[in-house]
């Protein structure tokens, strides 16, 4: 029992001594480091955090974000709309040109058809119309 107690006492003394050495070591190290001149360095994250924490910069960043997130899609939409309108106008012009060409082609066909019809019309009058035809002939002769 006495041996255990004395052993514990020895251990406690050793621990106390170690803790005292540790304390003095930290104090000495701290004094040495404290006296050393140094420039404060800040991390990138700290710089970013400070930038964001600044109300003016935060406002500017928020505005830029809103402009980017709203302005860019609106601009893209507008550009697409303009392109679609230009395409539609181009197609309309093509269609009009096509219609004009077709009408011209159709017009040629009508002329041909009329001449064909004229050639096909019988020059002789039917029997029932003979009196009228003779009157017309007489009137033309006079």
């Amino acid at each position: 029992m006495k041996f255990e107690e004395s052993k514990h006492e020895f251990e406690d003394t050793q621990v106390e001594l170690a803790l005292r050495n540790f304390r003095e070591s930290v104090h000495g190290w701290s004094e040495q480091e404290y006296a050393r001149p140094r420039v404060i360095k800040r991390s990138r994250w700290d710089a970013i955090f400070r930038l964001v924490a600044n109300p003016v910069m935060a406002g500017s960043l928020a505005s830029a974000l809103v402009i980017t997130s709203v302005g860019v899609p609106v601009r893209i939409h507008h550009e697409r709309q303009v392109a679609a309108e230009q395409n539609a106008a181009r197609e309309r012009q093509l269609e009009l040109a096509k219609e004009a060409r077709e009408q011209q082609a159709n017009a040629m066909t009508d002329d041909e058809l009329l001449s064909h019809v004229d050639s096909d019309i019988a020059q002789g009058a039917p029997d029932a119309m003979q009196p009228l035809a003779s009157m017309m002939t007489d009137a033309a002769g006079n």
């Binding site: 050793q14 170690a18 050495n21 540790f22 003095e24 070591s25 930290v26 104090h27 000495g28 190290w29």
Partner: peptide
């Protein structure tokens, strides 16, 4: 490395070695 800082006492070199080891173990 942090354990290398020891108080500049009047202890013997042997005691300094022991102290240095103790400080290292506490760290």
């Amino acid at each position: 490395d942090a354990g290398q800082w020891l108080p500049s006492g009047e202890s013997s070199p042997e005691q300094q070695v022991v102290a240095r080891d103790q400080v290292r173990l506490v760290w």
